[in-house]
Design a protein around this nucleic acid. Structure first.
Lengths: 124, 124
DNA sequence: ATAAATGCAAACGCTTTGCGAGTGC
DNA sequence: GCACTCGCAAAGCGTTTGCATTTAT
């Protein structure tokens, strides 16, 4: 099962996968599969460091292949997620630290908007 | 009930309130109250625009008085939330738009780290 | 008497876990 | 036989809703 999930991630069909989405694809590939099995595979892979869990603000857990750090844009219309190359915030961190007194060790940022396709469809 | 909740927000004891936290305070103030009543009050107030719902990434819904836009820092240790004055990202938006092609209309950003108190306790 | 507010209990969406059955070594 | 994987069912957790009762007007 872990292999099946790994294959899905390698397929790159999406940038960020919810367990549901993974489950659906895995079912297609294997004929059948249980949600909990996908969940467990994902849990293992996360512990291994192969994938990283991200929060896109819609209450579901998403996973992406754990490479370099980057931010995300999510289309409010179709849900498609893209990666924002480079980190917008490394500089900001020290400013936050200065203004709030918190020792800042992480940040979680999601942009919202419309992906090119949906933006085009809207403007018609 | 709505008044009781409103009072809690006016008290400014916290920056961001979960429904649980509001519920607890309201119970103290009124003697008893149902979680769902607090939930409903919060829902109404959000629709009114008096408060805004925010997502701090821990799976719970938080609410803050809906003033100007700003970001948040959350202490990984005690959960205390502070406001990051000013918007770190207005400039970044156009860059994101350029690099991803998405029309960016919003962003949701939470810094994580340690609040001054917890940072001090840790270093002992 | 009528309409609004509240409490109670249950539904819901998604995640997580316990356990038994199946599979391979 | 033993360890491991998987499916099934159910438990959790927080949010949300339906309904009946209380409260206020």
């Amino acid at each position: 099962m872990t292999d099946a999930v790994r294959t899905v991630f390698e397929g790159q069909a999406r940038h960020a996968w919810s367990i549901d989405q993974l489950h659906e694809v895995v079912c297609g590939a294997l004929g059948a599969a249980d949600y909990s099995s996908v969940f467990r595979a994902v849990t293992v892979m996360e512990r291994e460091g192969a994938i990283r869990r991200i929060d896109l603000g819609d209450g579901k857990a998403y996973y992406e292949v754990g490479e370099d750090h980057h931010e995300h844009v999510r289309c409010d219309s179709c849900g498609r997620v893209a990666e924002v190359p480079g980190c917008v915030l490394d500089d900001a961190t020290s400013g936050v630290q200065k203004s709030t007194g918190y020792v800042v060790t992480s940040h979680q940022l999601v942009f919202g908007g419309l992906c090119p396709r949906c933006a085009k469809r809207r403007s018609r």
